[in-house]
């Protein structure tokens, strides 16, 4: 930090510096009319660019800290719920589209790279490259939101909504993701469902589901290894909603509540980031940034890395559950 405060810098009352029109936009510009002529982007209450930059940097780090804490409440709720109801998470993960999540992860990583590069461009006053990198960052962010939009649309379409609105159109064992992984378990769940529906033989199904009871009728109970996926996903067993037939775990909707809450809040941060980058892109195009004044690009890049980082945590927590 700068301690080299020269007493020679004395505000001259009444001395007005003709501020450029763009000056109004300065993130932390102050009372412009009594700047002391040290530079167009130096707010009056700072003595040097270095001091102004250091203040902004500390400020953005503190802000990011609050962001981390803001998200931490949700991560905490996630942890508590996953600890209490692991079956809900196992159940829900079959519904998730890992490919789309993975694409979005890559997209964000690329945008983080271009954001970091933009900082370097600003420092070296490479105006064209700076604008280009900001444009790529914005493009990636928009791609992320478009993918997110399609993902949400699929979820809505499949009835995967938060809270009491959660009515999946397909049972978990009917999903390709489940069938591929546990073909025998899927087949068995299908059989039990048919038995319960067509034959109306509820007690036989209940007997088959309840592993402590002997199997009646023509049923052959699968091995425990084959049953395990159903138990773990809460389709049958003590965590299931319905004990007379294969069903979903109790409160399965909570996963999608957390899912939409976390990804939604993250999405709002991405949108905010797009807004900031557009604004900075316009300013960069006017050639406002250079080796002396590149703070806003630096701070926004830091913010953008955090948005990226939160996603890096969200992706495995919400998409890669096993």
């Amino acid at each position: 930090m700068s301690e080299s405060i020269s007493p020679a810098i004395e505000p001259k009352p009444g001395h007005r510096v003709p501020a450029p029109a763009v000056h109004e936009d300065a993130d932390h510009g102050g009372h412009d009319e009594h700047g002391h002529g040290a530079g167009p982007h130096l707010a009056h209450h700072f003595d040097t660019y270095q001091q102004q930059f250091d203040a902004g940097k500390l400020g953005i780090w503190l802000f990011l800290l609050t962001e981390v804490l803001f998200f931490s409440g949700l991560f905490c709720a996630y942890t508590v719920y996953r600890g209490m109801h692991p079956e809900v998470f196992v159940y829900a993960h079959y519904f998730l589209n890992t490919t789309m999540g993975a694409i979005n992860t890559c997209v964000l990583l690329v945008s983080s790279l271009t954001a970091a590069w933009a900082v370097r461009n600003a420092q070296l006053a490479q105006r064209k490259l700076l604008v280009l990198n900001i444009a790529i960052t914005i493009a990636c962010a928009c791609t992320f939101m478009v993918v997110k939009f399609f993902e949400y649309q699929h979820k809505f379409h499949d009835g995967l909504l938060p809270g009491p609105a959660f009515h999946p159109t397909e049972q978990v064992w009917e999903l390709d993701a489940f069938k591929k992984k546990h073909p025998e378990a899927a087949e068995y769940a299908e059989k039990l469902t048919q038995l319960a529906e067509h034959k109306g033989d509820v007690s036989a199904v209940a007997g088959a589901i309840d592993l402590t009871r002997p199997v009646t009728g023509k049923f052959e109970r699968p091995t425990e290894a084959q049953l395990e996926p159903l138990l773990k996903a809460g389709v049958i067993g003590p965590a299931a909603e319905d004990t007379t037939r294969p069903s979903k775990p109790r409160n399965a909707h909570v996963f999608f509540s957390i899912y939409f809450f976390m990804t939604g809040l993250h999405g709002i941060h991405v949108l905010a980031g797009i807004g900031v980058w557009v604004w900075l892109g316009i300013r960069a195009n006017k050639g406002q940034f250079g080796p002396k004044y590149f703070g806003p690009i630096d701070y926004s890049a830091l913010y953008w890395h955090l948005v990226d980082l939160v996603w890096i945590y969200l992706f495995p927590l919400l998409y890669l559950i096993h």
């Binding site: 609050t66 409440g73 938060p162 809270g163 509540s257 957390i258």
Partner: peptide
Amino acid sequence: PVIGITLLMMIVERTLHIGI
């Protein structure tokens, strides 16, 4: 920030009944 997210969750719980 923690009360912020808590109140937000409570508001969403109240409006959408998300079950947290």
